[in-house]
Structures are given as C-alpha cells and as structure tokens.
Write a protein that binds this DNA or RNA. Sequence first.
DNA 1: GACCGTGATTAACCGGGAGTTAACCGCGAA
DNA 2: TTCGCGGTTAACTCCCGGTTAATCACGGTC
Lengths: 226, 226
Amino acid sequence: MATVLVVEDENHIATTIRFNLEREGFDVHTAGDGEQALESARRLQPDLIILDLMLPLLSGTEVLRQIRRDSNVPVLVLTARTAEADRVHGLDLGADDYITKPFSIAELLARVRAHLRRRNGAASAAPLIITFGDFTLDTARRELRQASTVVPLRPKEYDLLAYLAQRPGRAIDRDQILNDVWNYDFTGGSRTVDVHVRWLRRKIEPDPATPTHLLTVRGAGYRFEL
Amino acid sequence: MATVLVVEDENHIATTIRFNLEREGFDVHTAGDGEQALESARRLQPDLIILDLMLPLLSGTEVLRQIRRDSNVPVLVLTARTAEADRVHGLDLGADDYITKPFSIAELLARVRAHLRRRNGAASAAPLIITFGDFTLDTARRELRQASTVVPLRPKEYDLLAYLAQRPGRAIDRDQILNDVWNYDFTGGSRTVDVHVRWLRRKIEPDPATPTHLLTVRGAGYRFEL
DNA sequence: GACCGTGATTAACCGGGAGTTAACCGCGAA
DNA sequence: TTCGCGGTTAACTCCCGGTTAATCACGGTC
C-alpha cells in the first residue's frame, strides 16, 4: 500500500490522522518539525505528504519549497482556519491541495484517496449515486430524492447519511462516527449522534419507531441497511 | 489522455496550472527554462504546449521559433499583462493562442480543451449554447438571451454563470469557484462569490428570493440547475 | 414476574454561524 | 471627470446543530 508522511507538531492531531490512515491500510510515518520533515521526505520517498504549515524549527512553507526543489510528490497542506489569503497562497507554493482546520477525517481521507488515485491513473471514484428503498442519494448534487421528489436535508444530516450509506451493513459505534463525520476537534458528547440519527429517521423511515434503514445496534452504535 | 507541456519559470504559477490540468485528467510535464523546454518538447512530443514568453536561458519567442521549425503542435502563449504589440507578435511567431496574465484557470482550461478538440477533429465540444428555463446562454457570442431579448451581463457575471451552467447539478463550494473563475492571483474573501450570485439571481430568477436555477447548498456552496 | 441500571429516544431550547442584502468605495476606462 | 465594474463591509435573518432533560426500552438479577 501507499506510504504517507504526516508532518504535524500538535501531537493529538498527528495521532488522530495516523490512526485513521492506518485503519485505511496506509503505511504512515510522522514528523514533528520542519527538519525531521525534510529528512523523512528524503529518506522515505512517500507517495503523499500531509503538511501542517505551522511548524517549529522550519516553517511549513519553507519545507514545501525545499521538497518541491526535487520532487513533485502530492502535498496536502493543513492550514489553520484563516483568511482566504492562505488559500491561494498554499497552492501558489506548490501544494496540490489544502484543508483548513478544523477538518473532518472523512474529508481528509477522501482527498488523500483522490490524490493517490489520480496518481495511479485509476479512474474508480467513490460511487456518485447510492439507492436504498425508494430513495436515491446523489453525492454530486448533495441531495436525497424519494421517487423524484427532493427530501430536504441539513448539512450535517447529509454528511451523516452519506457516511453511513457508504458503509452499509456495518455496525459503527458513536465514537467512530463522531471521529469520522464531525470535525477532529469536536469535544461534545456522543448523544449528539443520536439526535442526528433521529432527525434522519424522521425523513427516511416510513415509521421512525421501527426503522428499516437506520438501525440501532444496542451497545454498539448504528448500522445502515440498503 | 492528452499530454501537455507547461513551460513556466515562476514556480507557483507552474504548479497551479499543473494542479488544475491534472485534475482534468491531463498528463502534465513542466519545464522551467528555455533549454529544458526544447529538450522536453522534443522528447515528449506533447499534444499541446503552454509557453510563458518570459523565460531564463532562452526567451519564449526563441523557443517558439525553434519548436515551429519541426512541429505544428498547438502552442498557447502566456504573456504578462501588456500592450497589444506583444499579442500580434506572439501570433506572428506561430503561437496558436495567447492569454495575458493574470488569467483565470477556467479560461485557461477552456482554451486548452478547445485546441485539443480542434486537433482531434472530435465533435464532442463543450456545448456552445446552453438553455435553461426560457434563457439561452450563447458562449460564442458571450451573451445571455431571454426569449430573443438580450440580458445585459457584466463580465464577471457572465464568467460565473457560464462556469456554473457548464456544470449543472453539481454542488460546488466557494473556494472551488474562486479558484476556477477568478484570476489565479486573487486573494479576496469568498463573500465575493455570494455577491455575484446575488447579482446573477436578480437577472435570471423570476423571484430572486426563491431561486430555481442558482440554488444555494448550505454548507457546500452553490448549485446550478437547468 | 418485579425491580433496577444502563442505553436509546424524543422534544424543546438557544447560541452561533452561514447566507442574504444593501450600501460604500477604489479603480480603470471612456 | 464620469461611469460602470467588482470587491469589501456590516447589519440582519434564520437555519443549524449541540445541549439538556425527561421518558422509554432493553437486559440482567433476584
């Protein structure tokens, strides 16, 4: 599988990213400052680099510049929530993509996969359309239809449904869901998931009291069935 | 897919172009000076060349002249914002097209596609005319008509509308829109997009308060529907 | 089967944030 | 200089989503 180098000084973010990438089967290495980053990049020749711009010893922008001197490895920049200025700035420097903190793990993984896929020339993207019951989830439009009428979904509702619908038949616990769908720095209680599940059920279950798609697995979270 | 050679010494511009072309599926190679450019052009036999006129070692015009000695590959010239003189000059030399900096990515991509399409003789052009509701967007004339009367659009309004109308049914976020429609060196806030959307709505929506074509996708940008 | 603890559902509340809107203003062209 | 374009700002609105608490359902124990 592909090798990914994560350059991030904030330890909890680094481990969160590492954990999730490894769960996806990537070979993950980390560096905590700019010097290490350059050394690791040279030694490992990773297939993709995730780079925080805010770094000790050597700034992220400087690291990026030096990497770009002799490699065109895809670099995905993490930048603190900020003025739009940085947006262009990141790409200007030679980054291939950027994500502003705080981000959701789901989005980070999607982008990592997208870049590696592009690299391999492989075409198979995530499925654009998922159907279940008489519903159709259109990820391009970002909308849910029921027999050609649109079911209005709030942003979080859509995110949650898309996440679960892409993992049908698997029981996923609340912490996992929070970890993947919510921003990485979300520190709320897991009851939040319950509430969103309820809201979704009101919209996609004929009888929300006896769900057929969004099932609760007692003691283990929720499971989506097509 | 087609192979494109980008000859550009300013690194951030080169990577921006590369990033966007690769996102479209092109096989992109870059050269940073005139010598490299000639070498790469000879070796790669690209299907199209994007050539900055301002180059170290060997001027762009000289590169172009030498390329033209034994190839009629389409060459798209990038030239700094300047007087008309250079334009004619560029075309005289055998360039097939030119774009003045700063340019928008959307325009660059459109021109690249146009040249490659012409080359292939393939018919699958981007549709010249897009109709929605009782509107007609004529991309050749660069004008919008409503039942045979012309709707006056400001330049940016047209650019934005054309961009969205060519991607109907897809939710596109503000950053993406800024990246594609605005000039590559634009560093403003994304509220700018909102304002232009509003201006467009006043012109193409019967009731701007309840849009039917230019829909907002909360948390994810905007979406155009035919 | 009654009891109790834990986990899940449900409804209501409320603060913050995203989008809309109008007005302002600098810049470049006519 | 005037005018139009387009980017900025700020006020306002309303939706969103996280929280809380009460209620309900399930499962184990006696």
